[in-house]
Design a protein around this nucleic acid. Structure first.
Length: 305
RNA sequence: GGUGCCAUAGCUCAGUUGGUAGAGCAACGGACUGAAAAUCCGUGUGUCCCUAGUUCGAUUCUUGGUGGCACCA
């Protein structure tokens, strides 16, 4: 099989607010590609304003996948995304030479580009039970069990991070094997080329865009959107910047201005975490979002098959 | 105009019986494989308002300013 017949996945990544959506449309139009969203929150229905999902007009310009396809109550994960996206890509590469993937969910991107280890999905009841134990007795008894069942991971893991500790124990209890034994950390081969384009702005510029975007979201009716999903507030899908802060306001535990400031602040912090993650990825070729021509040049001259 | 109180980190404030200072929040750095917009870890960034004294040494005490607040006119 020649390189040319494989097809190319152009991954457009970068921190929130940098300008991925608009640029992804231009590039997809230029390449005649569909867009595959890689955003752990835009996947959900009814979160369009707060997640800055593509607008109806934008969705009409280019065919999008993985926007608003999940119910707020649906369970989802990076590994499920890997599965779903790979399946879809196999289909799309039948009649497209390239597909544009865009989004900022770091682990989802890596799940596609590098793969994620095969770890069994945790049984719902077991998760509930451990959650209950954690609520009642704290992390100590869970840590202790993990120490006995998987000393290797116990020594490796951040013991203060309850999510990691609990998940490792879940897997141990469910499979009867150590969690470590599932962690191979190997890079998976993909049947397509991968080109990573990173979008970057000066911090000051990015922060200003984020602040303005939050104000715009409020004008567009974010508060109303949050109110509509308020009764689902305990779900993971709504443990999301832009919603959790407004839920506090709706609970009467802070005033609206404070909630809005918190949204801005938490979005800025999130953007930094994204940059910290992306910084380590040496496969990324970085551009400013205004460098549309350069990016397309880069893709056409030798990088696209 | 008079009297009193205050001035310390980006903000709100502790504190130093005289040996150049510390909390919360913010800010910043990092980790990250099935909940990841999640979760967790780390870091003090400072003309202690200015000036002149006393002192081996002043952010701390004294003098005089400047600014703010309160009360009295």
């Amino acid at each position: 099989m020649t390189k040319a017949s494989k097809g190319s996945l152009v991954i457009l990544l970068g921190p929130t607010g940098v300008g991925k959506t608009e640029l992804s449309l231009k590039i997809a139009e230029k390449l005649g590609s569909p867009i595959l969203s890689c955003d752990s929150r835009q996947l959900y229905k009814n979160l369009t304003i707060g997640t800055a999902a593509p607008t109806r007009e934008q969705l009409e310009r280019v065919k999008h996948y993985f926007i608003g396809t999940l119910e707020l109550t649906d369970y989802y994960s990076a590994s499920k995304y890997e599965e779903d996206a790979l399946q879809l890509l196999a289909l799309l590469f039948h009649d497209h030479q390239s597909v544009v993937m865009t989004g900022g969910s770091m682990m989802y991107i890596d799940a596609i580009a590098k793969g994620i280890d095969e770890i069994p999905t945790v049984d719902e009841q077991l998760r509930k039970d451990l959650q209950e134990l954690y609520q009642k007795e704290g992390l100590d008894p869970i840590r202790e069990q993990l120490r006995l069942l998987d000393p290797e991971f116990y020594n490796f893991v951040d013991l203060k991070n309850h999510k990691r500790v609990i998940h490792a124990l879940e897997v141990c209890l469910m499979t009867g094997k150590t969690y470590s034994s599932f962690r191979t950390n190997s890079k998976k081969e993909r049947p397509f080329n991968i080109i990573k384009i990173g979008l970057k702005r000066d911090r000051e510029e990015l922060y200003e865009r984020i602040n303005l975007r939050v104000d715009q979201m409020m004008q567009d009716g974010l508060l109303e959107e949050a109110r509509k999903v308020y009764h689902f507030r305990h779900l993971n899908s709504l443990n999301t910047v832009g919603y959790k802060e407004l839920f506090n306001y709706l609970d009467d535990s802070c005033d609206l201005d404070f909630a809005i400031e918190k949204i801005k602040q938490n979005t800025r912090i999130y953007s930094r975490k994204q940059m910290a993650w992306f910084k380590r990825d040496e496969e990324i070729k970085w551009f400013h979002p205004d460098q549309e021509e350069e990016i397309i040049d880069y893709l056409l001259k030798g990088h696209l098959s």
